[in-house]
Structures are given as structure tokens and as C-alpha cells.
């Protein structure tokens, strides 16, 4: 029997700031390879050639992002449920492919105050001149390790480890208070009932 999937932030759906939403269960595969051209042609998206960037494209696995994590290390992100076919598709290429979908959940942040909120706990310069669309950095946000993608003019995607997700959600709520982004429900303590 397969257990029902419960996202790490299921209890937080109604409590997150209005500008934050979770995209749970995305397929994520950690790829280590020096033969990225072949992998790119399988996925239909060229792998990033410069550090701290990501690329997007569309192919036989739908919309796929490839995030630079290290000189020979990448994270392939696709829609939920595609980890097995992608892993099998990449198996023909040289390198290692590991399904890490359960390791992280994804948060999408948007709105005019998104840089202000992130600046409360992230030291990376996120000004559009320093971090244009297409930037992908691994850093600390409020002492939590994150992968941060600049996906639009005022849109950011955060990948955070599942076990840190609730802490980060609480921190985001707190950092968003002064911008009036929280709903009427005060955030007091940890939500109960879902875990």
C-alpha cells in the first residue's frame, strides 16, 4: 500500500504570506556528469554553462529546469511524478543520476517586496543588476540552506530541505509582517493536525 503524499508545508497552506505559495512534489534529480551535452539533448534543455545560473527548456519530459550546483553537479527539476522516466532517459548518458525529489520542497515568492523580505535573512545581493533572471545560488536564508532561483522580475523560487521547510515558512511569515502580506489569522506556534 502506498502512503498518501503529504507535502512538508500542508499545514501551512492557509497561513503563508499572500505572496508565497508551495509547489510540492516536483521531480528533482541530482546529476553529476561531465557529459552534459548528451543529457541536455535527452531533456531538451541545454545545461547551464556558467556557475550560479539555471536554464529552462521543454522536451519529452515537459518543462524542465537544470540548476547549476557545482562544477560537475546539476539539479534537474521537472513536474511531479517524472523522476523515474527522467532517470531512465538519462541512464544512457555518462554520469550519475540520483532521485532526490523527497529531499526538498519548493516555494514560489513573488511581489514587489520579495527582495525586501529575503534581505531580512539572506546576504546575497539580489538587485536585478547583480542577480538577473536566470540566477541560481545556493546560500543561507535565515541560517537555512536554500537553493534560490531568480525566475522573473519580482519572482523567486526557493528550494528548501523538507525538514527545514516549516521553520522557513514560519520565518517567511515573520519577515512579511511589516509589508502587510499576512492574512488576518495570527501565526502562533506550529500548526497541528497534519503531521
Amino acid at each position: 500500500m502506498t502512503a498518501e503524499l503529504v507535502s512538508p508545508l500542508a499545514a501551512w497552506t492557509s497561513r503563508l504570506p499572500s505572496t508565497v505559495s508551495e509547489r510540492p512534489f516536483l521531480s528533482q534529480l541530482t546529476v553529476r556528469s561531465s557529459d552534459t551535452a548528451a543529457m541536455g539533448s535527452v531533456l531538451g534543455v541545454a545545461f547551464p554553462s556558467r556557475p550560479c545560473t539555471f536554464t529552462e527548456g521543454s522536451g519529452r519530459f515537459g518543462d524542465v529546469s537544470v540548476l547549476w550546483l557545482g562544477p560537475d553537479e546539476y539539479l534537474v527539476v521537472a513536474e511531479p511524478g517524472l523522476q523515474v522516466p527522467i532517470e531512465e532517459g538519462l541512464r544512457a548518458c555518462k554520469g550519475s543520476v540520483v532521485d532526490t525529489s523527497a529531499q526538498r520542497t519548493t516555494l514560489v515568492l513573488e511581489g514587489p517586496h520579495v527582495r525586501d523580505v529575503l534581505a531580512h535573512g539572506c546576504s546575497v545581493d539580489l538587485h536585478p543588476a547583480a542577480a538577473p533572471v536566470g540566477t541560481c545560488v545556493q546560500t543561507l536564508l535565515a541560517r537555512t540552506g536554500i537553493i534560490l532561483q531568480v525566475t522573473g522580475a519580482d519572482t523567486f523560487t526557493l528550494l528548501v530541505r523538507s525538514s527545514f521547510a516549516e521553520y522557513l515558512a514560519a520565518w517567511l511569515c515573520d519577515a512579511s509582517v511589516e509589508y502587510g502580506l499576512l492574512g488576518e489569522t495570527p501565526v502562533t506556534g506550529r500548526p497541528q493536525g497534519h503531521r
Partner: peptide
């Protein structure tokens, strides 16, 4: 050398 200037805590 890969990521550019970052805080010492990283």
C-alpha cells in the same frame, strides 16, 4: 572561486 563573494558563515 566558483560562486563569488559570500559571507564567512557559509
Amino acid at each position: 572561486p566558483w560562486c563569488g563573494p559570500r559571507e564567512e558563515a557559509e
